[in-house]
Design a protein around this nucleic acid. Structure first.
Ligand SMILES: [Mn+2]
Ligand SMILES: [Mn+2]
Ligand SMILES: [Zn+2]
Ligand SMILES: [Zn+2]
Lengths: 149, 149
DNA sequence: ATCTAGTTGCGACTCATTCGCAATAGACAT
DNA sequence: ATGTCTATTGCGAATGAGTCGCAACTAGAT
């Protein structure tokens, strides 16, 4: 399991106003077992504070993105055009999405870290976000499928 | 300049029906100087064949994606939620998007290729698409900005 | 020249995300 | 504790990207 940043403390440290809604949303993302889209996040957060609006969800996601505390993912848009969110981990990690079964695998990799350093160094690019998403067939689904077609 | 696949020939070789609209769209993407979103693609393609509809653009993009001939990009959604498209290149390449000036840099990298092989090998994942997008500040903009804030 | 399955245009639709504005509530000062 | 001020919120309406159903059309096979 990858180590996640502690959102609530980090947000507090930024001197951002801590409302009940933000608290509920932040706790929800922090404890989420999977990548959440805005609608699922809203649904879950309402269990903590039923009085949260969709607009607040988007505004809070925007805030957390701006502060560099969460990452936004496409996950290959396997399921509509929505985006997914997760707490940033200490090391960046990458995502493999299976076109067939929808499974998402995630992991870190020294080569990925090295690539990150190279980009920053060679291009003198000040990296704020880095997103590597791979689509294809997971081990199981690749085995199940004929190689052709 | 990265070497692009020849879409028209590749599509023909697939035994896909070649309509006037598809031809116009394919030629447009092929010759595009930049990453095109669906609306820009439509606008440009209409110069070749004025009678193309938005729905056909999306259906054709879907087709080309399925055939693995184009890539779909977010480019960090710097400008709304739309997606961008480009002809697949012989080697995959990655994209750096500057949050400040919007510039997009692209390049290939041996480390990126190596990472790709590692993912395929270690995870036994059959890679169809691989998308690495980086957001941050380009060289010029990073220099212009104070390090804090 | 005919046939037909695949493709298209159209208009209506869905779904994710954003916006404007009046009401509310953190945080800080009193 | 109370008041003040401003950032934040809920609401409902709006936007914008992408999709769909269906009748009309056409590429390409025979
Ligand atoms: Mn996207
Ligand atoms: Mn590119
Ligand atoms: Zn799978
Ligand atoms: Zn820049």
């Amino acid at each position: 399991m990858l180590k996640r940043y502690d959102l609530l403390n980090a947000v507090e440290a930024q001197g951002v106003r801590l409302t009940a809604q933000r608290r509920a949303l932040i706790e929800t993302i922090q404890e989420a077992k999977s990548h959440l889209d805005a609608a699922s996040l809203l649904e879950l957060a309402r269990k903590r504070d039923p009085k949260i609006d969709r607009a607040t969800v988007y505004r809070t996601l925007e805030l957390l993105k701006r502060l560099g505390m969460i990452d936004e993912l496409d996950l290959m848009h396997l399921n509509g055009e929505k985006h997914y969110y997760e707490v940033k981990t200490q090391k960046d990690h990458l995502h493999l999405a299976c076109f067939n079964c929808g499974e998402i695998e995630e992991f870190t990799s020294p080569t990925f870290e090295r690539l990150k350093r190279e980009i920053a160094d060679k291009n003198e690019f000040d990296i704020k976000v880095m997103r590597l998403e791979v689509g294809g067939l997971c081990k199981r689904c690749a085995a199940r499928k004929p190689v052709l077609q």
